[in-house]
């Protein structure tokens, strides 16, 4: 899991290999995921998971695996991550991320954590 959400780190440290950096912006998580894809990893979760747009939430978590679960077409993951990076720049160009209150920031951590909890509860995660 690549993430900048400390609550994901706290929840799954030791259970998943976690690449966490609290200094990372949303974009940095996308870029880290892109680098893993170039190294042969496959995306398990959609990079833009959640309807909260990239210029609205500071947090992003993405799960990748060395093994593909679905035999997707070549370059699907690379296309998806590049489209996500492009979408990030489009939204940030339109309006940058607001200065959220700590309460809102915590709400955004909760939303991101919840998206990942849904993923972790999926039986497919227990297949390996």
């Amino acid at each position: 899991m690549v993430t900048n959400n400390v609550r994901c780190l706290e929840k799954w440290e030791g259970k998943l290999q976690i690449d966490y950096n609290e200094e990372w912006a949303y974009l940095d998580v996308l870029l880290a995921a892109r680098d893993y894809i170039h190294r042969g990893y496959f995306l398990l979760t959609h990079p833009l998971a959640g309807s909260v747009k990239p210029n609205q939430t500071p947090f992003k978590s993405i799960i990748l695996s060395e093994e593909s679960l679905e035999g997707a077409e070549d370059f699907r993951d690379l296309t998806l991550i590049e489209e996500s990076i492009e979408a990030y720049h489009k939204f940030m160009g339109n309006r940058p991320l607001p200065e959220w209150s700590e309460k809102s920031v915590e709400d955004f951590r909760t939303i991101d954590l919840s998206l990942m909890e849904g993923v972790m509860a999926n039986p497919i995660m227990n297949r390996r």
Binding site: L43, L44, H46, A49, E70, A72, G118, V119, I124
Partner: peptide, 10 residues
Amino acid sequence: ENVFLADKER
């Protein structure tokens, strides 16, 4: 509209 790409493919 799940988060898992495997769910989307399936």
